[in-house]
């Protein structure tokens, strides 16, 4: 993972490298999906009166935490981002604290955006914030895990032809999918069906989750499909 197949010249080796990378990514994604499914199923056995709709906030927390855990573990194990030069403990701590700060900022940003989009400002603040936290977990946390604190890299990844590895591509796909899913999730709210899942923010968080899952599933497939076209330039 630490070396990218750049101008090595050996096409065979490049392909093999790519396949291995895709496989490892697919497995990480699989664990992410599994964690989401488990977060909906397992707590029902442990907690009383747990249901995804009824105690939605609990589920939001559990889902965020489990997805975050999987992502962090995967990033520790696989180390997709080049590790910085200085690797002392204090640097690690500051990096960790900085990451937490970034995550909080992104939660607040998402909260603001959601309110700007018409979520209630004063009522159900907790719901809105947890929804923002879920979105941050699906998007910002992955960025933090995969790209580190390098904001320039973030800007690069989210622009045309900016992906430098399959991880970047998958990041693009999952982020866009989860945000679009959350956006689409707002659509059923005005309908007069009187369903329990039309209550804010359930439909939106479902949309985000489904979008995220869809992104996780499509990203390896899409990359595998287009692996001939994808030529990542090396740094």
């Amino acid at each position: 993972m630490k070396t990218y197949p750049g101008e090595l010249g050996d096409i065979q080796e490049k392909d093999i490298m790519k396949d291995i990378e895709i496989m490892s990514m697919a497995s990480v994604h699989f664990f992410c999906v599994l964690s989401i499914i488990l977060s909906a199923v397992v707590p029902a056995f442990l907690l009383e009166k747990f249901s995804v709709l009824g105690t939605h906030l609990t589920w939001l927390c559990i889902c965020s935490v489990s997805v975050a855990a999987v992502n962090i573990i995967a990033s520790v194990v696989l180390k997709p981002n080049p590790s910085p030069k200085r690797n002392s403990l204090s640097h690690k701590v500051t990096r960790f604290l900085k990451s937490c700060l970034y995550f909080m900022i992104s939660c607040l940003l998402f909260h603001t955006i959601v309110v700007l989009y018409g979520a209630p400002l004063l009522e159900s603040v907790l719901e809105t914030f947890l929804f923002a936290a879920l979105l941050s977990t699906f998007t910002t946390l992955r960025c933090l895990c995969l790209l580190g604190l390098n904001l320039q890299a973030w800007i690069r990844v989210f622009s045309k032809n900016g992906a430098m590895s399959i991880w970047d591509s998958s990041l693009q796909i999952t982020t866009v999918c989860s945000i679009v899913g959350a956006w689409l999730g707002a659509f059923p709210i005005p309908l007069d069906w009187d369903r329990p899942w039309q209550v804010w923010p359930i439909s939106c968080s479902f949309g985000a989750t489904f979008g995220y899952v869809a992104g996780l599933i499509t990203a390896p497939l899409w990359i595998y499909w287009n692996r001939k076209q994808l030529t990542y330039k090396s740094k």
Binding site: I155, F158, S159, K160, N161, G162
Partner: peptide
């Protein structure tokens, strides 16, 4: 606009090949 790299200073090449 961001995606197509219009927001970034033109010095930084975002177009495919370096």
């Amino acid at each position: 606009l961001h995606w197509s790299g219009k927001l970034i200073m033109p010095g930084w090449a975002t177009s495919g090949l370096p």
